[in-house]
């Protein structure tokens, strides 16, 4: 369900869906982008690190979590203007279920009455409600033309 600029309320958190990360997700992601970092692809190596096993690349978590948020503005998004303050706070592994809550941090009008800017903060949590990743996204959205008059 896409929402226009007017419909997002500052301070409100919008829930999205959860997704269980599988070993296949991580294999395909690493193969697709060309990551050959042992921590991501070599279980025997990763066992001996402080993580105790393979973890998901940060870019995987960033990609999957941002995809979780798209339905909020699927048809109203004009552009993703920037991402800021990405913080990777805890490891994600195969078998973890992550979900994303989208908080509206601030809203700004533009000179163009058909467009508005929203700063979202994506909070990505795992099945134990541990925040694994946070990032701010500055997004240009459509406004409701009829309300602008």
């Amino acid at each position: 369900m896409s929402m226009y600029w007017e419909e997002f309320k500052t301070g409100k958190r919008y829930e999205t869906y959860g997704r269980t990360v599988t070993e296949g997700d991580l294999s395909m992601f690493c193969a697709f982008v060309g990551y050959h970092v042992p921590l991501f692809i070599d279980e025997e190596y990763a066992k001996l690190t402080q993580y105790g096993g393979r973890i998901a690349p940060s870019a995987f978590t960033m990609s999957v979590s941002t995809a979780m948020t798209e339905s909020l503005f699927r048809h109203t998004v004009i552009s993703l203007m920037s991402v800021e303050r990405g913080r990777f706070l805890a490891p994600v592994r195969a078998g973890d279920t992550i979900r994303t809550e989208v908080e509206v941090i601030s809203k700004k009008e533009t000179r163009n009455l058909e467009k508005g800017i929203v700063t979202f903060r994506d909070h990505v949590l795992n099945q134990n409600d541990v925040v694994v990743f946070e990032i701010d996204k500055i997004v240009m959205l459509k406004r409701r033309i009829d309300e602008v008059g």
């Binding site: 599988t22 070993e23 395909m28 193969a31 050959h36 692809i41 025997e44 190596y45």
Partner: peptide, 14 residues
């Protein structure tokens, strides 16, 4: 070559 743990996803892809 980089050391890699093979998963069912690699098999499926191939």
């Amino acid at each position: 070559t980089p050391s890699k743990t093979l998963t069912d996803a690699h098999f499926l892809f191939f």
